[in-house]
Design a protein around this nucleic acid. Structure first.
Lengths: 260, 260
DNA sequence: ACACTTGTTCAACAGTATCGAATAGTTGCG
DNA sequence: CGCAACTATTCGATACTGTTGAACAAGTGT
């Protein structure tokens, strides 16, 4: 009486690993939790959760903190490693720092993975306000400046694919929710030379993004952006200034990336 | 014929999770690998490795890159989250940046977890040389400046525990390898007011470390350090200067941490 | 001392991870 | 072209291991 024979055959996954990472995700989002909390949240017997947590603990992946478990710093290693061996990150980091320093706002570096935007790096000056947008954040492309900057230079069929896969969820009244609107916006973005995220997703935050292209293949690699409070940023002049700064940063990164 | 009855009974761990992370570790260290590479390296049937990789891929934890698999950026999220919700990191980051800027060398922030030193954060100026010491790195305490700075202010029984658990491995002729030497060094460290890692572990690198204490409980929380090339750093004067800079950084962090 | 938490152990069972062998793609070479 | 050598991938039977409810221990507060 073996496994799942009936299905389409490509459903061969290991259950315990999925479960383990459900728990990891939960601990991540809750900033730590007790056995019973996790058990009830994930609708799983306590004893089961217990074995998982003990296993993860023995691997240094979670650590006990009194009665609650939280993710251990071993994850830092994985994360840091992943990022560090990204050639893009290595070439771009210092430029992004510079951009943040020069503009006095938050500067961001992002890429696309699996149709989502991943925040690779974020640089903020001392007076930066937002604590939002944690590094490593996965989110939809269509409501972020980084995402729109990249989409604007993707081949149309790839854009379609991404929409098919992830849809166009709505965060508030500023969010683009139809394909037509999105295509229009992407065209404007190309004309304008930079993308704008004007509270598409988060109240009070305005972001300006520019793609980073591989100069050889002319394909999008990544994107840079600068974020600031709407109140301070949304005048045509400052937006133009910021856009120039972001563009020149993108340019430097492109050059450094090409001649690495 | 259920589980493992013979043993001491407390050995209840889930095998597949351990295996999964062995694979993750391998991919991390190799910066990506193919199915067969992983299979032979871990001495596991290809078919088994295959299922694991497919499972991890479906969870966005690894991504394909041609024929080889590497860790995905989802690990960034875990790592970033872990770090960001560390109160110490939040209060210390900007100070560490400042320290790096002022000294022109690499500044580091570390903590202890499970008797090992974890590199929480590293700040390097544009002209920084070393690409070593990746963020999240776990290593023994006794051959790092951060580790020795912390050990010097640990209760002796805790130091013993840590040595029992991890030993005193040797990296080169500068490494401390006996308990007596270590205790002596820790005492000198206390007298001196800062710890010194003079090529204990890595050729050509000299590091100066200072602990960060909780002002209320007077317990060690963490440590800061500054690293530079031996050639540039090892004169009594520069070492004293650097030590002062590190000490004052540690102090500021202690204050900010206390009045958070 | 009580009731009500929580984390932890245990053993029996069901179901699934496992592995060898077969298959299917790829690449390189004669 | 087609063979050879290399991959990734599928498949099926079995042993094993993850799973679970229930019992136990250890706190915590009233």
């Amino acid at each position: 009486m073996a496994g799942n024979r009936g299905e389409n055959g490509s459903e061969n996954r290991i259950n315990s690993i999925e479960r383990a990472f459900k728990i990891v995700d939960f601990l991540e989002s809750e900033r730590g939790a007790t056995v019973t909390e996790t058990a009830t949240a994930l609708d799983t017997p306590k004893s089961t959760v217990h074995v998982y947590l003990k296993t993860l603990e023995s691997l240094n992946l979670v650590v006990r903190d009194g009665d609650s478990y939280r993710l251990g710093f071993r994850f830092l290693k994985y994360g840091g490693g992943v990022r560090n061996r990204s050639r893009l990150y290595r070439t771009a980091k210092l430029e992004v720092d510079k951009l943040a320093r020069e503009t006095g706002e938050v500067a961001n570096l992002g890429i696309e993975e699996n149709g989502l935007r991943v925040l690779l790096y974020k640089s903020e000056e001392a007076d930066a306000i937002h604590d939002n947008a944690p590094i490593g954040e996965y989110t939809n492309m269509h409501w972020t400046a980084l995402g729109k900057a990249m989409l604007a230079h993707y081949p149309p069929e790839r854009v379609e694919e991404i929409i098919d896969q992830h849809g166009l969820p709505e965060a508030n009244e500023h969010t683009i929710t139809t394909r037509e609107e999105l295509y229009e916006e992407l065209e404007e973005t190309r004309d304008r030379g930079y993308s704008i995220e004007d509270q598409d997703r988060r109240q009070g935050v305005l972001t300006i993004g520019v793609p980073i292209m591989d100069q050889r293949t002319n394909e999008v690699i990544s994107a840079v952006s600068v974020s600031g409070p709407v109140s301070r940023v949304r005048s045509p002049e400052t937006m133009a200034e910021l856009a120039d700064a972001v563009k020149s940063t993108a340019n430097v990164i492109e050059l450094r990336y090409a001649h690495y």
